[in-house]
Design a protein around this nucleic acid. Structure first.
Lengths: 223, 223, 223, 223
DNA sequence: TATGAATGAGTGTTCATTCAT
DNA sequence: CATGAATGAACACTCATTCAT
């Protein structure tokens, strides 16, 4: 039932979605929807919570804990882009519609986002620690950097979803180059390159499909 | 009258905005709104066009043409963050609501965005040319990088708008560090720093207010 | 619910009728009207179709097939005037409002009218055949005569509805005198007189009420 | 200005006609319409009165006073059909729309109609007097006959307006046959035939156009 | 005088929400 | 439990009508 709601909300937006359409797509009657979820607001809220949790879980599950910060980021981003590519309606709900209608929904999705931002922040802090630069990066600045990284990731998720032939892996590689190496280094031929890792069995079996079709764009950038 | 519409659309979104509220805020009667702008759709469209034009003009006017690519980007970003900070409702209309309701509106804002992405793409290409790396950056990759940069900027605009005490200059500096130097370089103490330039007379006199209040965050990062 | 609609449409006309008034008269809420009949147009159309069918059925049921042409016409006219007298609002809808608003509605009522005109045309042709005058009445002329007869009937229906004390039987007799005998014969004392027939049990029991109150106007004319 | 109003009212009906369209068609501004005619109601009323007067005058002018009753009717009908054929919008206003909207307008057009019905009634009474049948035709019956005749004329006016190639003269001839001879006499080959009269100079020069194009349908009927 | 500019009142239509069954 | 049937409240939109100029 939530699946139907996510689908309709994702395609129509909160206001344009009608409970009739949701109930019909779910194959149940409208009062049943009201029985389980009290109102349109609650239904939307439930969608947001479920999809926010699904997304954070997917990212968390994708991160390889033992790796250095850039490796963790790389693995997390791949999981993120894979998840958003597979659940475009959910992604639209979270990224577009939830922020568009009402403080309550915006707050719910914001708390999810903060969790991800916090994770990225930790990664940046860990990287700084590794480089013995910890004290010199003020917290406010790190917050801004994390925000920029997450925003770039969101934008690339939209872009990858709208552009034919862009895989999750490519999107992640592009973002790693951009975020880790930076345009300055890219110009001088010093791209970021992924850590060597055995490609493990993915828990989601068709994930690798999306990744392996194209040549590694990082290699392209690296020339 | 468009001001009122932008304000209401920005706060409520397209569907939740009522023509009654717009007319009331504009201090006119509803039929007058229909006299000048034919329908809710047309009104929304007019808002989008006006604000899209205003934003692109602000960015274009802010860019210093003679500077090297990073300097141009820096000046453009400062104009961008200044404009979005000053027109939060317009920014919400463009970035949130226009993309949420209908292909027609999405297309209108997409064409504005493409203009900005094209500008950024040119900057990246120019930077590559300066560094004699032109042939080694494939076009598709550059498109992804530009998308990431613009997405990061959009996200930071939201963040700066929601966070007290973050100035346009700070946001721009954070984004330049992130995008140009990259996290990798930042970790090793090599931030990007703004080009030396005489602070010119701003055509919009109070723009500098937003910029000069805080110490230079780049310097902070640079430690 | 259609009854209420016919009543309101009949009294107010299409445009001046409001869905509110119809719903109120029907004792239901406005959305319910929209649930069953999709729009004002559809509602009006449904009224027209129902009343057109009712009228043609009433006429068809009233005609005695075995009689000579004038007897058939006489019986059909009595049914016609009886029906219009009993359903004045329906008659107004068909004869006044449906022809006034929109090609679609006009076409619907025109097809009903054509059915009646065709029936009258057949009667005239049959009468001509009986009198061995078939070849001498051109088809175009017959069409005009049928049109005149139907128009006179419509006008008398309005007149009977507006004039106190005119029964359906009187109206039919007047029209038979006028149409069959003609003013010329009436002047010379040769009115048309109804065929001798046993007055059968009417399927609609109160029909005879309307007929029997007054003395036979045909006899009056016959002097 | 009334011309414009008649045209718009005739084509759209009372309610669907907008003062904007009338003013635009008249080439003046809307407040000017309100200056000369106080309201939409008054404007409609003025249209009705003007066109009612024009129609009755046309009929009155067409009648040849010296002729016997059937000759007078014949000449009046020709004037009637000529006038309605030349002023279809006016005819629609009088016959369709004025009766459709409001007691006030219906009363105005009814008084015109009563004038015509009274004239026809006098003709019938005169014919009865000529035939020495005066006392035997009760007044109520004559009223019904006049009503039928006028209704047939109205219906034929609509029919002639909607059917290509039917002239005013033909319509009048058809109606004379129908009304004066009656279907019964027509069947036995005794149609009505027009009185011999010199075709006088018409005050409206192109009136004869409409009449003379086709062969005399009465002659057709007469075989 | 003639009008550009403005509106109050009312329309058809929709939809989240609720009971009686 | 599950739902068919029903509605209150609201919205976009229109138009006859009026002033200030």
């Amino acid at each position: 039932m939530l699946d139907a709601a996510v689908s309709v909300f994702g395609r129509r937006g909160y206001m344009a979605a009608s409970m009739d359409e949701i109930a019909e797509l779910a194959g149940v009657s409208k009062p049943l929807v009201y029985l389980y979820l009290n109102s349109k607001d609650d239904l939307f809220s439930a969608c947001i919570r479920r999809e926010a949790r699904a997304l954070t879980e997917a990212v968390r599950a994708g991160v390889r804990p033992g790796l250095p910060p850039d490796g963790q980021l790389w693995s997390g981003l791949r999981a993120f882009f894979t998840h958003t590519a597979r659940n475009p309606d959910a992604w639209r709900v979270l990224h577009l519609h939830a922020r568009t209608h009402g403080e309550r929904f915006a707050a719910e999705v914001a708390s999810m986002r903060e969790e991800i931002v916090a994770f990225v922040t930790q990664l940046i802090a860990a990287a700084a620690r590794d480089a013995h630069r910890d004290p010199h990066l003020p917290a406010g600045e790190v917050a801004g950097l994390a925000e920029a990284l997450v925003g770039a990731a969101e934008s690339l998720a939209d872009w990858a979803g709208a552009t034919e032939g862009v895989t999750a892996k490519q999107a992640a590689a592009t973002l790693m180059n951009f975020a880790w190496a930076g345009l300055g280094d890219l110009m001088t031929g010093r791209p970021w390159s992924p850590p060597e890792e055995p490609e493990p069995d993915q828990s989601e079996p068709d994930q690798s499909d999306a990744d392996q079709a194209e040549p590694d764009p990082v290699a392209q950038v690296a020339g």
